[in-house]
Computed example of a mutant assay.
Amino acid sequence: MTTHATGTREEWLAARIKLLEAEKALTRHGDELVRQRQALPWVRVDRDYRFETENGPATLIDLFDGRSQLLVYHFMFGPDYKAGCPSCSSIADSFNGVHVHLANHDVTLTAVSRASIDKLQGYKRRMGWTFPWASSADSSFNFDFNVSFTEMQQRDGEIEYNYVRGRHAMDMEPAPAPVKAFADTCGTDAKTYARDRPGITAFVLEDGAVYHTYSTYARGVDAVWGMYQWLDRAPLGRNETGVWWKRHDEYAPR
């Protein structure tokens, strides 16, 4: 027999209506956050960033692909990784369907990573993905937007991530178990793995100039992590005691 609270349909409905008010308040608060996000001042990007794509060399303007807005997902795939981060991979599983709709609403969605374009394309084929993915291997792009760090920054505790400078959870000694486990699945060590971090950055193109409008990191990426939005509505919620997810081709058949 269940240990969870049970009740009549009438009791459930009364509790659900009470919860609905809290959900509506959260929705209204979210709408206000969106307005505040869009009201942030824009910062002009004057650096000439260069990328490699499946179609050849590209500038930051080229990544817009003829649209006025660009959303970049900073995918953890460092130059020494053998495979992409499992967490970023589970997030990116939703991009195939989303990027088509965004492209028809004047927004380009692309992933950017420091691994070579050959590695990215090989992994993309393995995962069955179709969304754009650019390599910033020969660019300071990742470092300038605070999602990649040097060995010296890591050693000296001078990493600035999620708007905080210092040592972060991923930089702990010894490495936290999840970081070590993820590093192993990427074919690298924990320190190398932790020199790349996840994030989302938004840009706008206006009158030939590119402006940086928004960036979010760490738990700020949760909003686009599709499986968690569903789990938060499931009866048992996230129901996790540790890392349970894998790349989608690594689960046992069910």
Rank of each mutant, 00 (worst) to 15 (best):
E206P: 05
H29Y: 09
F75D: 04
F77A: 03
C88A: 06
Y211S: 10
R247P: 00
T27C: 10
H4K: 13
R247C: 01
Q69Y: 14
M1E: 05
P178G: 04
F149T: 08
S135T: 03
T201G: 10
Q229C: 00
H101F: 10
K246S: 00
H74D: 03
I200S: 05
M127G: 03
Q69I: 07
K124C: 06
H4G: 07
D144Y: 03
D184L: 09
F143Q: 01
A223Y: 11
F143I: 01
S136P: 01
R28A: 15
A83C: 11
N162Y: 04
T241S: 03
G56M: 12
I61L: 09
F143N: 00
G242E: 08
T188V: 13
Y163N: 07
Y123D: 14
P86H: 12
V179R: 00
V45H: 13
H105C: 14
I91N: 02
L120S: 07
R155M: 06
N239R: 03
N96C: 12
R247H: 07
W129E: 07
A111W: 01
V72N: 01
I117D: 06
A92E: 05
V34N: 11
T110P: 00
A15C: 06
P79L: 12
P132D: 10
Y214Q: 09
Y214I: 02
K24E: 10
V43E: 13
F182I: 02
A115T: 02
G97N: 11
A83K: 15
V43N: 09
T27N: 07
E173F: 09
N142D: 06
E158P: 02
V147R: 09
V147C: 11
R50H: 08
K82A: 15
K180P: 00
A58K: 00
L120Y: 09
Y161Q: 06
D93S: 12
E160G: 04
D189S: 05
P198G: 02
I61M: 08
K180I: 01
S148V: 14
G84Q: 12
R35D: 14
F182N: 00
W230G: 00
M152F: 08
R16E: 11
Y81P: 03
S90W: 04
P253M: 03
P57N: 02
R47M: 07
R238N: 01
T213H: 09
Y161K: 08
A92C: 04
E206N: 14
